[in-house]
Simulated assay, not measured.
Amino acid sequence: MSDQSMGFPPALKEKYVISKTLGTGACGEVKLAFERETCLKVAIKIINKKKCLLENDRPLNVETEVEILKKVDHPCLIKIKDFYEGEDFYIVLELMEGGELFYKVRRPAKLSEETCKLYFYQMLLAVQYLHQNGIIHRDLKLENILLSSPSEEKCLIKVSDFGQSKLLGESSLMQTLCGTPDYLAPEVLRFESGAKGGGYGRAVDAWSLGVILFICLSGYPPFSETPQKCLRDQICAGSFTFIQEIWDHVSQEALDLVRKLLEVDPIRRLTIQEALLHPWLQDEEMKRIFQELVSKAETAPNLLVKGRKRPRAEDELVGPTKARKLQQ
């Protein structure tokens, strides 16, 4: 039991046994907890109201995050179990025991290209589902990609943290600067600087995924602040750092996908649907492994959240005809 559990809402304590802290952030922390009735492990995301006040005495992004979490239903998106409000906000989520992808790619750790492909395929499916449901994530980064297993490299991943996400209509363009600087698309930075263009759309998620794929394959970020050139200028120019001896070990198909996602012009940048059709991802063995992981997760009680039946993962795929229709 946590020493701080006495301050939690009574309804939360009645249903869950709160345990150790798993991680901390700018606006709160994540704690391990156990559901009393089933003994299943969950993660409780605690958002400190005092630290995250925006306006009207309420952190607006919390309400949006909970709304999105309740709406989405996909094997590669984190699941919400409960939500409580008291002195702070408490979002009860399924526990991903493998932690953040960030720690799997941080040097000297290195993922194989095949593992990168399995993870990235799942990220694309998750973001495709979000976009098809009118949601732009806006803060895709390694820290928001969670792994289901701490030991098995071939595992399910889940996209998390919808605090910066936006629900929008088909014709909407966002006009709010958000996201993590290293992963921000050029059009977001241009909008912040006052350049004309009227905002930005779904393509920002494709750019962020390109940054993630670059790091997964190479072990270092494509853009970083230097005395010679600031981060903003590098991103807006699409001028990423290319270390030949590292990329010599990466396939040309993988590099081609990275280049097409890190396209400065959002109109020319690959969409999520187009990325799924890229030759690098036409790997039937990888897709078979993914389907096995999904099937296994469906029968594992600690990953299963009661609610609507999940769509089959293959239903999220698009063929060339459907991809063209989605782009029209």
Rank of each mutant, 00 (worst) to 15 (best):
Y183K: 07
E192S: 11
G134Q: 03
M96D: 03
E113Y: 00
L168S: 04
Q164K: 08
I68H: 00
S224C: 13
K296I: 04
A300G: 05
D82I: 05
P221G: 12
K20I: 07
Q234E: 09
I47A: 01
D82R: 00
G134R: 05
S208T: 05
K117A: 05
L95D: 02
D248K: 11
L142W: 02
K20N: 09
K117L: 05
G199E: 02
K154A: 14
P301Y: 07
V318M: 11
L77R: 03
A254Y: 05
S295Y: 07
V105K: 04
V66G: 01
E55W: 09
L142A: 07
F120Y: 01
G194S: 04
C39L: 14
E67S: 14
I68T: 05
G307T: 04
F83N: 10
D315C: 12
G99F: 02
E85A: 14
E143T: 01
S295F: 08
V127G: 01
I91C: 03
L209S: 03
Y90Q: 05
L277C: 13
I46W: 02
L317P: 09
S19I: 06
T321P: 00
G197V: 06
K104N: 06
K154F: 11
P320C: 04
Q291S: 15
R232C: 04
E152G: 02
P221C: 10
G197P: 03
F223D: 08
E143I: 10
D3H: 09
L95Q: 02
G99C: 07
L262N: 02
V42Q: 00
T115V: 11
K81R: 11
S295E: 15
E29L: 07
S208H: 08
L231H: 02
S171F: 08
S171E: 15
V17L: 13
F223N: 00
T24Y: 08
N133W: 13
L177A: 14
E94T: 01
I18E: 03
L77I: 15
Y220N: 03
A237F: 06
D3Y: 09
D3S: 10
G134K: 01
P221F: 11
A323K: 04
D57W: 08
P221T: 12
S165C: 13
S112E: 08
I267Y: 12
L168V: 12
D82N: 11
Q128A: 14
C216G: 02
P320I: 00
R312D: 15
R202V: 07
R310K: 13
L276R: 06
S295N: 14
V294Q: 13
V105A: 04
Q252Y: 04
Q273G: 15
F102L: 11
